[in-house]
Design a protein around this nucleic acid. Structure first.
Lengths: 222, 222
DNA sequence: CTACATTTAGTACCAGGTTCTAAACTGCGT
DNA sequence: ACGCAGTTTAGAACCTGGTACTAAATGTAG
């Protein structure tokens, strides 16, 4: 369909220019259509006819060619996406996927930096996400029903960019005699490079209920 | 519609008890209906007839009485909600509302602990949200186009619960000679009580591009 | 028995489409 | 001037998941 056009386009100029400016409207219209629907997915075909000054059939042919589903399908997809997000928010309770866990000893989690984790202009990951991964892991590695971060000393060694996979490794360094506190060290890497390190003091169940308690806790994983 | 019912309910007991256990099926069914739709908003009236073993008209009467909109309306509402959320996500870039800002001097932000910030079982705020508020503020108070957290030393003084409002106050303590680093102290309070404190080292634009750079930055706010 | 609530049935209608068939119009090559 | 392809428009039948309304059947308490 378009093969022919591009072929002729390249060859001659004077005659085909006319052809192109006559043909472009379809492409242009479809581009516009995509843009309109993108920035307002709630628009009906009816409304589109008014905006693009073509018949409703043309709108529908365009949607078909572009693979854009009908209004209701779009809404359903959006609803499902947001519903899934809400559902997977409990998964959001631990930031990063824990791939290895030896309670009271060590743990490893992986966290991929995605669009929502970076500063839009520079695509550099925001610090609190790296902290959150490390903090979650430090809390998870403690073998108690409740564990709360009491304090932390952290360092952002280098910035992490969109798409990079952070691998955090946590080591439990010491358990206090009364077992009320634990020291956990976390090192995060992208590849071989260390990008973050943190020293966490975690309060655990017995002492965590009263007294100076921190900002995080966790449930026993299996 | 319900006024009458509740009226008789309150008055007499022995006679109405019978009436109630005869009436309950309706109420019970409606409670079930609410629950079903709540945990699966994508269900059609047809599917509900099978689940509740009543006619589709009853389902629809129930929905009316309960003020539950039809499937398509539900999906539309969800889609709109998620769309608004996505739109207001850039607001999520700074955690907490900045209410006062004196660049290179001090700043104040307020952050209310909501459902999504707490651990579901205990309703205690997760540490990284408190950190995020403080970190955002520490970065915001620096008068530079780009600012990145290099390191932080933080302490969770006491746990914060659902519904509490955290007020974070940041003070720029020192600016290095070359202006490449700044020291920022942040103290967060619920009412009079301090709940968090942190010491941040922030790298600023000139030196931030190369060298050891942190995990956060910010754009100039007006 | 009667009055009232509850449930079910059925019809007409609607939005926002899909699917399919059939015309027009447009412009180009020959 | 003619045909042909790409494009646009029109129209009818049908679909889902409802609303709105009328009417009848069933229950049940007083």
């Amino acid at each position: 369909m378009w093969r022919k056009l591009t072929g002729t386009e390249i060859r001659v100029q004077e005659t085909k220019v006319v052809r192109d400016i006559e043909r472009l409207p379809k492409r242009k219209r479809q581009q516009q259509l995509v843009k309109i629907i993108e920035e307002n997915p709630f628009v009906t075909d009816q409304e589109l006819t008014r905006m693009l000054k073509v018949s409703i059939q043309t709108i529908r042919l365009d949607r078909m060619e572009l693979g854009i589903p009908e209004l209701r399908e779009r809404l359903k997809l959006m609803a499902e996406r947001s519903y899934d997000q809400v559902r997977s928010l409990p998964l959001h309770e631990v930031i990063g996927d824990i791939v290895d866990l030896q309670l009271d000893r060590s743990g490893i989690s992986i966290f991929e930096i995605r669009e929502e984790h970076v500063f839009s202009r520079t695509h550099i990951a925001r610090g609190h996400h790296l902290f959150a991964q490390a903090n979650s892991l430090a809390v998870a590695v403690i073998n108690d029903e409740i564990a709360l971060t009491a304090s932390a000393d952290i360092r952002f060694v280098r910035s992490v960019k969109l798409g990079e996979k952070c691998i955090a490794k946590a080591y439990v360094r010491s358990i206090s005699g009364s077992r009320s506190k634990a020291k956990v060290e976390v090192f995060s890497y992208v590849g071989e490079e260390m990008i973050f390190q943190g020293h966490f003091i975690i309060y655990r169940s017995a002492s965590a209920i009263n007294g100076s308690e921190g900002g995080d806790e966790h449930e026993n994983r299996h």
